[in-house]
Amino acid sequence: MAKMTLKLPKMATSMQNGTIVEWLVQPGDTVAQGQAIYVIETEKTSTEVESPFAGRITPLVAIGDLLPIGTPIAEIET
């Protein structure tokens, strides 16, 4: 079983930063691949982001902070 790190994704051409405005999961939840796990807000829009992996999720960042793309935001034990 591997530990996968999720980083803040680049959701649009112009995106440099984003803010997680809501976690849709609790620490320790088991998530399915494709399940919406958080809501990200960028300059333009807010979007639900789906989990790329299935497994036990641990969010690493709080909501509300402006984060550069590539910032580690969660870990998933698959």
Binding site: L6, K7, P9, K10, V49, P52, F53, I69, G70, T71
Partner: peptide, 13 residues
């Protein structure tokens, strides 16, 4: 590829 993008491991359009 979309998995890599969602995980932030890949960053491009």
């Amino acid at each position: 590829i979309q998995q890599g993008l969602a995980a932030g491991a890949l960053q491009f359009q």
